[in-house]
Simulated scan of single mutants.
Amino acid sequence: MRFVDRYPIIVTPKLAECRDFWTARLGFEVVFEADWFVLLQAVGATMAFMSPDHPSAPPGPEPFPGKGMCFELQVEDAAQAYETCRAKGLVCDYPLTEEPFGQLRFGFFDPSGLWVDIIEQVEPAEGFWDRYMTA
C-alpha cells in the first residue's frame, strides 16, 4: 500500500476559527474549503476540520474538545518556531521548555480545543532513560 497523504480530521463546529488560527499563526494554507470541511497544508503537515453535522462525518468522533489526543508538529528549531508563533500573536499555554526526556517544546490549544505540541528532538538529560531500562 502506498499512501498519498495522512492527516487528522478534527470534528468541530468552529471551522472558520480553526482555519484562521492555523493559517495566520502557523503558516498553513487552505487546500480545499467548503461550508462543512477545511483541508489545510504546510510543508510536511496536513490537517482537516469537519463540521459535526455533515452526513459524511465518520461514525464515532464527537466534536472537540476530545480527550486523549494531541497533535505533534516536529520542527528543526523549536526556539525559532516559538518566537515566530509569538510574533504572530499566538498565546502559548505551555512555554518553551527543554524536557529531560529529550524534547525542546511548547504547546497550546487551537480554537477546536485540540492540544498542539511543537517539538524539536534534542538529547535527553544524562541518565534520564537509565531508570526505565531493565537488566
Rank of each mutant, 00 (worst) to 15 (best):
52 P>D: 12
45 A>T: 13
60 G>E: 04
60 G>C: 03
49 F>R: 10
62 E>D: 12
37 F>C: 03
101 F>C: 01
78 A>F: 14
14 K>Q: 15
74 Q>P: 01
24 A>H: 11
93 D>P: 00
132 Y>F: 15
69 M>E: 00
106 F>A: 00
19 R>S: 07
14 K>A: 15
96 L>H: 09
63 P>L: 12
49 F>Y: 13
123 E>S: 13
57 A>N: 11
108 F>E: 05
77 D>L: 06
29 E>G: 02
123 E>Y: 04
74 Q>R: 12
133 M>F: 05
4 V>S: 08
15 L>F: 08
108 F>P: 10
74 Q>K: 06
127 G>D: 05
16 A>F: 06
68 G>R: 01
112 S>Y: 07
42 A>H: 12
58 P>Y: 11
121 Q>V: 14
133 M>E: 08
104 L>E: 03
2 R>S: 10
99 E>Q: 11
32 F>N: 10
69 M>Y: 05
115 W>S: 04
97 T>P: 01
52 P>N: 10
39 L>Y: 11
122 V>I: 15
116 V>I: 12
18 C>Y: 06
68 G>W: 07
114 L>Y: 00
78 A>T: 10
70 C>E: 09
84 T>R: 07
48 A>E: 02
51 S>G: 12
94 Y>N: 01
34 A>Y: 05
59 P>G: 06
55 P>A: 13
114 L>T: 12
110 D>A: 00
67 K>F: 01
16 A>T: 14
98 E>K: 06
99 E>G: 03
10 I>P: 00
52 P>Y: 13
129 W>K: 11
96 L>R: 04
3 F>G: 00
87 A>Q: 14
71 F>V: 05
56 S>K: 12
37 F>G: 08
124 P>A: 04
112 S>Q: 08
15 L>R: 09
131 R>G: 05
59 P>R: 09
130 D>N: 08
28 F>W: 04
129 W>Q: 07
41 Q>N: 14
12 T>K: 11
126 E>Y: 00
52 P>T: 14
2 R>G: 05
109 F>C: 03
53 D>R: 13
79 A>Y: 08
135 A>D: 14
130 D>T: 09
64 F>I: 00
43 V>C: 09
